[in-house]
Simulated assay, not measured.
Amino acid sequence: MDGIWQNGPTGTFDYWLGLGGPPAGLGEIAVGRKRNNCFEVYAVDRVDGFAWHTTQVNQSDSSSGFGEWLTGMGIQGLGQIAIGSNSDGLLGVFAIQRK
């Protein structure tokens, strides 16, 4: 998976940055913004349908990249995935089981 960031509110976009991904490869992805303004990326792998996530290390420096891809959300067989945030900035992850 790759990402690209704008270098200011009216600026141009920087270069594409490789974010890696789980060994099974990624299917559906969803991106949310945490309370600290860092992006959190959730994805479903193509093989087992596990949910994976990674977090932006530093929101003011796109070159610092993202952390390690982690799983362990306790469910597999997922298809679509989505993220929402409530008024205090906490993220909620929602997914649909594969048919």
Rank of each mutant, 00 (worst) to 15 (best):
G3S: 13
I4S: 10
W5Y: 04
Q6E: 09
N7V: 10
N7T: 08
N7H: 07
P9W: 13
T10C: 13
T10I: 07
G11W: 09
T12S: 14
F13M: 12
F13Q: 13
D14N: 13
W16R: 03
L19A: 03
L19C: 13
L19W: 06
L19D: 11
G20W: 02
L26W: 03
L26H: 03
G27I: 11
G27M: 13
E28P: 10
I29L: 15
I29S: 14
A30H: 04
A30D: 07
N36D: 15
N37I: 01
N37D: 12
N37E: 14
C38S: 12
C38A: 14
F39W: 04
F39C: 13
F39E: 14
F39K: 13
F39H: 12
Y42D: 06
A43C: 07
V44I: 08
V44S: 09
V44W: 07
V44N: 05
D45N: 02
D45A: 03
R46C: 10
R46S: 12
R46H: 05
V47S: 09
V47D: 11
D48R: 11
G49R: 02
W52L: 04
H53C: 09
T55W: 02
D61T: 00
D61I: 05
S62H: 05
S63R: 10
S63M: 02
S64E: 15
G65H: 02
G67R: 06
G67H: 02
W69E: 04
G72Q: 04
G72H: 01
M73Q: 03
M73I: 01
M73L: 09
M73Y: 05
M73N: 05
M73K: 05
I75P: 07
I75T: 14
Q76M: 08
L78P: 05
G79Q: 09
Q80C: 03
I81F: 10
A82E: 05
A82I: 00
G84Q: 11
G84A: 13
G84R: 07
S87M: 09
D88Q: 14
G89R: 11
L90V: 11
L90F: 15
L91M: 05
G92C: 13
G92I: 07
G92Q: 12
F94D: 04
F94S: 12
F94I: 06
F94N: 14
A95Q: 04
A95L: 10
I96A: 08
Q97I: 06
R98W: 03
